[in-house]
């Protein structure tokens, strides 16, 4: 039972963090710097989370490097999200089977 209270407490805390800005900010933000900041946030966050964590997903780092570079090149050349994602997944799987 106590475990369920823990789960409820953390679920509520996390939900509040997610819901408060989305419900309170109901107008367009006009401040240019803040707008720019919010525009950059997702890309910076994704880049920070991807690298260097991506390099440690396989036991042999070179395989992860190949997957990383392949995904970067494909994505930069506007290959669709689905193909980039599953393509580098299949590539890494194949290289591990060698």
């Amino acid at each position: 039972m106590r475990n369920y209270i823990y789960i409820l407490v953390m679920a509520l805390t996390t939900y509040l963090i997610r819901v408060i800005p989305l419900t309170l900010l109901r107008k367009e933000i006009t401040n240019r710097t803040f707008r720019s900041f919010l525009t950059y946030v997702p890309y910076v966050t994704l880049a920070v989370m991807t690298f260097p964590a991506i390099l440690s997903i396989t036991e042999e780092p070179w395989i992860a490097w190949v997957g990383f570079v392949a995904a970067m090149v494909l994505a930069y050349n506007r290959v669709s999200l689905f193909i980039v994602s599953l393509g580098c997944c299949a590539l890494v799987l194949a290289l591990q089977m060698l």
Binding site: Y76, V79, S80
Partner: peptide
């Protein structure tokens, strides 16, 4: 483990597919 690793790669590949085209 090989399949788990590859599925992990799919997740990062998705991240990359979001920020790289925007960078172009």
């Amino acid at each position: 483990p090989a399949i788990l690793n590859a599925m992990n790669m799919a997740l990062y590949g998705m991240f990359i597919a979001i920020f790289m085209p925007a960078a172009r």
